[in-house]
Each structure stands twice: as structure tokens, then as C-alpha cells.
Simulated assay, not measured.
Amino acid sequence: MTVLVTGGTGFVAGWTIAQLLSRGYDVRTTTRGRRPAVEGDHEVVRADLTSDDGWASAMSGVKYVLHVASPLGGSGDLIGPARDGTLRVLRHAVDAGVSRVVMTSSCAAATPPPGSTGTFDETLWTDPSLKFDEYRRSKLLAERAAWEFMRDKETSFVTVLPGAVFGPVRSRSNSGSVRVIGRMLDGMPGVPRVGLNIVDVRDVADLHIRAMTSTAAAGERFIAVSEFMWMADVARVLDVPARSLPNFVVRAASLVARDLRPLVPMLGRSYTYSHAKASSVLGWDPRPARTTVLECAASLSQRAS
């Protein structure tokens, strides 16, 4: 029983591959030429979300596809590669007769309007008419396009929507969102008033595999979030300086510091997500956020030493 995991160099993909191997699955993963995040007994094929080359052979003999790969940041267009790359993977999976595709979306595709409070779940879709950053729009439009494409296909489809993914890193090169923890450990002049809906990367991997095999998961979205923490609370857990930066300081700094710009729409947000559906349908039981933060920091410190 072969599982294809796309984007094998990534943070989530690395842990997903490792868990699949530990559970006895045959694993194949795609990369754009870089070494995958996991060394071990699995097949690596070259395929890129921007080209059809390699995808037909990557899908050959595959029962399940976990589509984890996605553009993450930097300059340039994210929406086109995220949406078109997702549709490319889905077309090849359907053509190959894959039984099920589980796609990694994001809570970015279930973002309430600015100023919202309370607890939200998978029934929420980000309003595309609202002004959000390009990453958030790319995740929304990619997932929307995916559901539209898969509507009448025999291949079943599931999406997993993680929050802020932290946890132990397998290497410094595939740390993803863990950079937030790394910056705190390295020393920050202060922390913005930003709330994080935290989830452990190992629990995200586990939820993908549960969604892959459960008959009840077909045609469903699943929020992957453990707990909400303010960045200042994360800093206190890490025992690092936690002086809060006023919102106007962050906004002003973002005019010259590009990496701060995605934080601006998040300033002051205090809404949370419920993982009740993943727990009730799939038996998913995520780790406490504090545990995730501490084990993430420990792994970063170990890698740096």
C-alpha cells in the first residue's frame, strides 16, 4: 500500500513521512531536487507544482496521496502556484485512480472577519472579498478550487486545516513556521500582540494519516489546532523577554521590514478554533500547546549546538 507525500522537504511532510514509515506504509515523496526531510527507506521522485513533468510516474501504483506541498512565502505570486499546483496534483491523482487525496490547507482558509472574537470551526470559509495577505488568499483559493474540482470525482477528498505549526524540527532547513520560536530564542526587542492557534507538527501528521484511512473522513474538512496562546505567553513559557510591542510600532516597522507585514492583519486577534470534529470523528487528541512550544525550543537549541 503506497502513499505519496508531496513536498518531501517540508516541515509537515517530514514528520508525515516518518510516521507513515513507522506504521508500515510504503512511502514515495516528491521534491524539486533538494534532499527530503527524512532519510530512510522510501522512494524520492522529482516533481514540481509548476510543471506536469514527473507527476504521472509519481502517482503510479499509489493508493493514497497526502498533498502537503505549497508555496510558503517570499516575494512574488503565491496564489497561482498554490491553486494551479493543487489542481495539477489532483488531476494526476484522479487519472491514476488514487483512492483518496488528503490536502493540507490552513486555518487561513477559515479566517473570520477582522475584529472577530469567539470560537470557530470548519464550517467557516474566509471571505475572499476582505483584504487579507497573499498567503491567506492563496490557501483559500487553492482549497476552494480543489473542492470544486473534486466534486464529482470517484477519488475521495479531505482537507486538513492547521493553525500555527510548531514542534520538533528535523533540520534547520525545513523549520517552516518554527522560525517564530527561533527568533524569540535568539532575542527579540519585543513581541507583537498577536495570538497564535498552535498545533504540534507531529499531531498534524497524525491527523493527515487518520483522515487518509477513515471512511467517515471522506468529503470533510478538519481543523488542526490544539490551543490559543498570545505571543507574549509563548515568550514567558520559553523564559525569554516578553515586552509587548504596541500595535502602532509594528505597523510602522512593517513599512520597511517586509517580514513583519503578514503580522499586521493579525494584531490583536483573539479568536480561537475548535478541534471537536477531528476528535469526535477521527479520535484525534493533540498535545497541549505548552508542550509543543517547549519541545520545539529544545530541538532548535539542540540543532544549533
Rank of each mutant, 00 (worst) to 15 (best):
P189F: 12
V201M: 01
T9M: 08
L185P: 01
V191P: 06
R83Q: 06
V27K: 02
T111A: 10
A93Y: 05
H208F: 12
T31G: 00
T123E: 13
V240N: 11
G187I: 04
A58T: 00
G118N: 05
F11P: 00
V38Q: 01
R83W: 02
V204A: 09
Y135P: 06
E148V: 02
L207P: 07
M266D: 10
T111R: 06
M150K: 03
F248V: 04
R137V: 06
S156C: 12
V281E: 05
N197C: 13
A276N: 15
V3Q: 05
F157S: 01
W125G: 15
D41F: 11
T9L: 14
A297V: 08
S75E: 12
S177C: 10
G182L: 08
I223R: 00
S270L: 15
I181C: 04
R221K: 10
V201H: 07
G40F: 14
P71C: 09
S138Y: 06
V281W: 05
V12P: 00
L141K: 04
W147F: 07
K63L: 05
G33E: 04
R258S: 04
T9S: 13
N247I: 12
Q302F: 10
R243W: 08
R210A: 00
R144S: 12
V165H: 03
D133T: 08
V194S: 10
V293N: 01
V194L: 12
F228C: 07
M212Q: 02
A47Y: 01
R269Q: 15
M184E: 10
T272F: 05
E220N: 01
T6I: 02
L72H: 15
V180K: 06
E148M: 09
D285L: 13
P114R: 03
A93K: 03
T119K: 10
S177K: 09
G283K: 15
Y64H: 12
R34I: 12
R210S: 02
D186C: 11
A289L: 03
W15G: 10
E227Y: 01
T111S: 06
A142T: 09
H42K: 11
V225Y: 13
S279C: 07
D206N: 10
V101K: 04
G76A: 04
W55F: 09
R221M: 11
R170V: 03
V264K: 13
F222H: 06
S279Y: 11
V65T: 01
S305W: 13
L267C: 15
E134M: 11
G54T: 11
E295Y: 02
V293S: 03
S274C: 08
H67L: 04
D77V: 09
P288H: 05
V45P: 06
L196R: 14
H92Q: 05
M266P: 05
G182N: 07
V65H: 00
T117L: 14
G167P: 05
T29G: 04
M150R: 02
D48H: 02
P114D: 03
E43M: 09
A37V: 07
V240P: 01
G10K: 00
A93L: 13
G10N: 07
S226F: 11
S279M: 08
V281I: 14
P286N: 09
V201Y: 12
A217W: 06
T31N: 03
Y64V: 02
